[in-house]
Structure formats: C-alpha cells, structure tokens
C-alpha cells in the first residue's frame, strides 16, 4: 500500500488523535498527518501542503465541514482530494448535503476502527 498524506479536521484534538489511530489500525501507511481545528484552518494548510485524504467533522466553529467541502470544490487543485465526513451530525439531510457537495463518504460517531477501514479504503481505491 502506498504512503498516504492525511488531513484530519475536527475541533476536538482528542478526536483528531483517535481518527489518526484508527487510520493506522485500518492498515494505512501514513507518511504525514496534518491536523486542523476547523475548515478555514484546513484550507490554509492545504494551500501549502498537498494531501491524499481528508477526514472532516461537520459541526465545527469558524467554518463547518459542509462549507469546507463546498470551498474545496471551488479550488482546482483541491477538488479531487477524497473527503470522508466523520460526524455526530448523522442526520440524513446533512449526509445528503455533504455527499452532494463532493464528500465521498461519511462515518458516524461513535465509530470503530473497522468502520473507518470500511469507509476510507474504498475512497482511496484500496
């Protein structure tokens, strides 16, 4: 499996660490893991740091996950990065909206490492 550069976007630093651990448990070989506390911060990171995978919460201050995905689609070089939403906001309307904006999948909190594996590997074509 090739090395993956990941960006984890969540306002909870604890959750960011759990997501990173789950990605490693899923068997992903992570060459770098960058973290952002909201969508705006994530866009700043992406400006200078290319990544292969983004996992993003929806409910965050400053810029939420839905707006973040929307903004990604407006930038040519960022449009193709697969995004998986990880959220407690598992309502159908939020999920449909995230997918329609360009997200490739979603994982509902609480989640197991197996669920992360099940949802993340396919969007990477693994």
């Amino acid at each position: 499996m090739s090395q993956i550069r990941a960006l984890i976007v969540d306002d909870s630093s604890v959750m960011r660490k759990i997501v990173e651990r789950s990605l490693r448990q899923a068997g992903l070989d992570l060459s770098s893991v960058r973290e952002a506390g909201n969508g705006a911060e994530a866009l700043g990171i992406l400006d200078a740091n290319p990544v292969d995978l983004i996992l993003s919460d929806i409910n965050m201050p400053v810029m939420d996950g839905l707006e973040f995905v929307r903004q990604l689609q407006t930038v040519e070089k960022l449009r193709g990065i697969p995004v998986v939403m990880i959220t407690t906001e598992g309502s159908e309307s939020n999920v449909v909206q995230a997918l329609s904006l360009g997200a490739k999948g979603y994982i509902r909190k609480p989640f197991t490492p197996d669920q992360v594996k099940e949802h993340v590997l396919p969007v990477l074509g693994l």
Partner: peptide, 20 residues
C-alpha cells in the same frame, strides 16, 4: 457531543431536524 448525536439519531424522524 457523541451521546447527544447518538440519542437524536435514535429518535425516528427527529434527528434530521435537530442541530447540536
């Protein structure tokens, strides 16, 4: 956050119209 989200998700027809 997870307890609140998990709970509202278990209420049929409610979770879609409740924000946290």
């Amino acid at each position: 956050n997870m307890i609140a989200g998990n709970f509202k998700g278990k209420l049929s027809g409610v979770g879609n119209h409740c924000m946290l």
